[in-house]
């Protein structure tokens, strides 16, 4: 029962439209990949270029943040609002991020050596 579903053959027009749509979507994914590669280059470049650490640290953390959001919403399809239970998933992911942030804050402020 868990494997049951209903499906029907697509018309030729619909099929061709969907194939084209998939191809366009894939091209967008490649562009997203290019952006991620660029952000990675940038992060390594600012460190190698030896700017002040006060400038580099926030910048590379920001670049990492942008890259992760790009991964989540493009490669992992969190932008797909029609996916099953996407609301629940988004809530859990961002709540997980809040917990992670709280953990950093706690560990970095109450633990000393």
């Amino acid at each position: 029962m868990g494997h049951d579903t209903q499906f029907q053959a697509k018309s030729k027009k619909q099929y061709e439209y969907d194939r084209h749509h998939n191809a366009v979507h894939m091209r967008k994914q490649v562009v997203n990949f290019a952006i991620m590669i660029f952000l990675t280059f940038l992060a390594f470049a600012v460190v190698v270029a030896d700017f002040s650490a006060y400038f580099i640290k926030p910048v590379i953390l920001l670049l990492a943040g942008v890259q992760v959001v790009l991964q989540l919403y493009s490669f992992m399809h969190m932008d797909d609002k029609k996916a099953s239970h996407m609301g629940v998933i988004s809530t859990f992911v961002w709540f997980g991020a809040v917990i992670a942030f709280t953990m950093f804050l706690t560990f970095l402020t109450i633990i000393w050596w």
Partner: peptide
């Protein structure tokens, strides 16, 4: 949904080892 719930629990695991 199952793999996503697992990933969310994994986020907290990594948060603790990162911290």
């Amino acid at each position: 949904v199952g793999i996503w719930i697992f990933i969310c629990s994994d986020i907290t695991l990594f948060a603790s080892v990162f911290a």
